[in-house]
Simulated assay, not measured.
Amino acid sequence: MTQKTPTALSVNLNKIALLRNSREGSYPDVVAHARTCIAAGADGITIHPRPDQRHIRVGDVVDLHQMLQSEATIEFNIEGNPFAGAMGSYPGFMELVEQNIPEQCTLVPDSNDQLTSDHGFDLTQSGDRLLPIIEKLQSLGCRISLFMDPDIEQIKLAKDIGADRIELYTGPYAEAYKNQSPELEGIFQSYYEAAVAAQEIGLGLNAGHDLNLDNLPKFREIPNLLEVSIGHALTVDSIAMGMSTAVARYKNICIS
């Protein structure tokens, strides 16, 4: 059997922040949980600060950025809508990234009223606006990943506007897996083909959304999957088994 390439595990801390925000104060502490994840084997920390600060707040971005300065091998990944402007104490996505430069910036086409990210970019509509943003962020030293559906023609456009990687939106795959849909294999194959096409034109491959302990092993059959970002399911698993154990379980899948 061919040995799979290890996949980096980046833990999304949004749901820890959401729990914290349900009461006054800083319990649970987002930075402390980031340290727990790192100690348990996480390769990166992901956050998705939205303008309404419903979970990750501006202060969390600053605190995590400062803490991760001393973690040379841990990647900081900030996700978000690059077109999001200022709202209250939220300075705007681009301003926030420029003030707290991460190793990776994942650009996502979510609006303020979305519950969660649920589709990739349509680059026939937004590609021209994204091009100078990508160039600006790359000039700051950020690797740029675009949140994309498994659409090969759209993925080609991601390469054309200068993205370094794509993050495949895995929601439809996860839904089909959960329901054991008869269309599961066809859906998985569409992701496989999109991943191969991306790599053939020089794009790195990330993935994320609703991946969990059950469906991640199959998705890992896709070759050269560089990184997965997992938050909601890992947080739920942490309630049952503890965060250190949950991170270790996910990490084991990513390297096996």
Score class of each variant (00 low, 15 high):
238 S>D: 00
123 L>S: 06
23 R>V: 13
250 Y>D: 04
144 I>D: 10
78 I>K: 04
208 G>W: 07
110 D>I: 00
249 R>M: 13
203 L>S: 02
165 R>A: 11
17 A>D: 00
168 L>Q: 02
167 E>T: 03
196 V>W: 11
227 E>A: 05
104 Q>P: 05
185 E>R: 15
138 Q>M: 12
141 G>A: 14
239 I>M: 13
204 G>N: 06
204 G>A: 07
189 Q>H: 14
240 A>L: 13
20 R>C: 02
101 I>R: 07
143 R>Y: 09
45 I>S: 02
236 V>N: 10
30 V>S: 01
249 R>H: 14
25 G>Q: 06
152 I>M: 10
24 E>H: 14
154 Q>V: 08
249 R>E: 14
134 I>E: 08
10 S>A: 13
97 V>K: 08
77 N>C: 02
78 I>N: 02
104 Q>F: 05
253 I>L: 14
179 N>E: 11
197 A>N: 05
224 N>W: 00
31 V>S: 05
3 Q>L: 01
92 G>S: 12
13 L>W: 01
255 I>R: 14
191 Y>P: 03
90 Y>G: 02
253 I>H: 07
101 I>F: 06
100 N>P: 06
23 R>P: 00
125 Q>G: 15
170 T>D: 07
40 A>Y: 05
166 I>C: 01
165 R>E: 13
244 S>T: 07
142 C>M: 08
84 A>P: 02
41 G>Y: 01
232 H>T: 04
199 Q>Y: 12
106 T>C: 04
187 I>N: 03
97 V>F: 00
60 D>K: 01
197 A>M: 07
209 H>G: 12
2 T>C: 08
212 N>W: 04
112 N>W: 07
99 Q>I: 03
31 V>T: 14
187 I>H: 09
107 L>A: 03
177 Y>R: 10
158 A>P: 00
211 L>S: 08
222 I>Y: 06
162 G>T: 04
180 Q>R: 09
144 I>G: 11
153 E>C: 08
31 V>G: 10
3 Q>F: 07
107 L>G: 00
208 G>I: 09
238 S>Y: 06
180 Q>E: 09
60 D>F: 12
189 Q>E: 15
57 R>M: 09
161 I>S: 01
218 K>I: 12
190 S>G: 08
60 D>C: 13
60 D>A: 13
113 D>N: 12
74 I>L: 05
255 I>E: 11
179 N>I: 00
214 D>A: 09
160 D>I: 00
172 P>W: 01
139 S>F: 11
150 P>Y: 07
87 M>Q: 12
40 A>C: 05
39 A>M: 10
254 C>W: 04
47 I>W: 06
185 E>C: 03
159 K>S: 07
96 L>T: 01
181 S>M: 00
120 G>P: 09
184 L>F: 09
100 N>E: 00
112 N>A: 15
33 H>Q: 14
249 R>K: 15
20 R>H: 06
32 A>F: 04
216 L>G: 03
159 K>A: 07
109 P>A: 04
23 R>S: 13
89 S>A: 13
28 P>C: 03
18 L>D: 05
196 V>L: 13
213 L>I: 09
130 L>P: 12
23 R>N: 11
201 I>C: 13
109 P>F: 10
96 L>A: 04
185 E>D: 15
152 I>F: 13
249 R>A: 15
238 S>H: 07
157 L>Q: 14
129 R>A: 15
44 G>H: 02
226 L>E: 15
213 L>G: 07
122 D>N: 14
